[in-house]
Amino acid sequence: MNECHYDKRMDFFYNMSNTDTADEWTGTKLMIVLCFGTFFCLFIFISNSLVIAAVVKNRKFHFPFYYLLANLAAADFFAGIAYVFLMFNTGPVSKTLTVNRWFLRQGLLDTSLTASLTNLLVIAVERHMSIMRMRVHSNLTKKRVTLLILIIWAIAIFMGAVPTLGWNCLCDISTCSSLAPIYSRSYLIFWTVSNLVAFLIMVVVYLRIYMYVKRKTNVLSPHTSGSISRRRTPMKLMKTVMTVLGAFVVCWTPGLVVLLLDGLNCTGCGVQHVKRWFLLLALLNSVMNPIIYSYKDEEMYSTMRRMICCCSQGESPERRSSRIPSTVLSRSNDTSSQYIEDSINQGTICNKGHS
């Protein structure tokens, strides 16, 4: 019978896996990584808080898509918390951690990734429901959206806790991973493959929707009254979603591939040398999302700027003409397929925020 090692500290498992936790995490390099990590985490907290506040404050965002977008921002905010906890419990400190504290460290990261991924899957379903009917927003009620958000976090918390619940190598050291010394290699294979398959499914779904909307827009344009920009609004919103998904896939795929190689016990792949850089790349995803929201959606940008302007009476810079006009409806009770754009008086934007 295999002996279990619940009472051991992490130095025992790191030594068994021949992992050098101190390499590249001491001296100047460590300080540089911590400084960049701290800056990024502060930006994540502030920017994603602004996105959530914008959805709550602006009644034009009170639709299923934007509720889910706010939940994605909440997942990014949670990722920032996970990275802060990681920064204070990594490098040479890793070997001093208890098994439970190490499980907490990794569980927070796994939960944040699962929350973001599951949220993107739900957004894909919501986009399919609305876009296939050529509408900006689906008819999901607030009650159903709230239930979906609760399910998203329940799944995320469960997936983050799976290794703690038993799928680990504490009782079978020979199956331990190198990057995650108390994770079973079989769990890493399951976790990374399931995430990569989910990436592929979402990419295929969004490409299908994108092609459908583009085809329908081209067919209906000559026969539809109204401005060209109104008819292209569904395509603009799809581009925003696809940009968010693209950034997510680009930032997370390299790290997942490295974990998969480790799960497959690829000893000659040099996974130890690139793991830190890919972790920083994953952190960058939570930094990019708020920038994408504000750049792609004019109304989101305007709402966030009004909230920032409330702290200052100074003159705001002119908006860039490359931003895409707002994709929200002007009335919450409008369920038709007409897409209404909102014009904003830039000269009085801060004054409106104070009124």
Rank of each mutant, 00 (worst) to 15 (best):
I152C: 10
N119P: 05
E298R: 07
A161R: 09
R105L: 10
Q272F: 12
Y212H: 12
C309R: 09
S343D: 09
I52Y: 01
C41A: 14
R135G: 02
V93D: 04
T217P: 01
G160M: 05
P64H: 12
A154K: 05
D7V: 03
D11K: 05
V274R: 03
N351R: 06
Q106V: 00
A53H: 12
C350Y: 02
S49K: 06
L68M: 15
I32G: 05
L264D: 03
R331L: 08
A198D: 03
F65Y: 11
L120A: 05
L86A: 13
T96C: 04
N218V: 14
H223A: 05
D342M: 13
V51G: 01
N168P: 02
M87L: 08
V205E: 12
C350P: 00
M304A: 10
W277N: 08
S286D: 09
R331Q: 08
E3G: 05
Y295I: 07
A156M: 07
R215H: 09
N351S: 06
C266E: 03
A53Y: 15
Y14V: 07
F43A: 12
F13I: 01
S321D: 07
L113Y: 15
N15D: 14
V257T: 02
T164P: 04
Y206R: 08
D262S: 04
Q313P: 12
L121N: 15
I173H: 03
F85N: 08
S286I: 02
V99T: 08
T217K: 00
A124L: 05
C311A: 15
L165A: 14
L245V: 14
N71D: 12
A82Y: 03
V244Q: 12
G166K: 13
I228Q: 09
L260D: 00
A53C: 15
F61V: 09
L284H: 06
N2W: 07
N89R: 05
M238W: 11
S302P: 07
I155E: 09
L165G: 13
R331D: 10
L72T: 01
F158G: 08
R323E: 04
G160F: 06
R215S: 11
I32L: 06
I123M: 15
I228V: 14
A74S: 06
E3S: 08
L260E: 01
L179C: 11
P92S: 12
S322I: 13
S337F: 09
N71V: 04
G226M: 09
T335C: 10
I209D: 01
A73P: 01
V51R: 00
R59D: 07
T253D: 07
I157L: 15
P290G: 06
W25C: 15
Y206V: 04
E315F: 09
S312Y: 03
D76R: 10
S177Y: 04
A282T: 02
G27A: 12
H62D: 13
A247M: 07
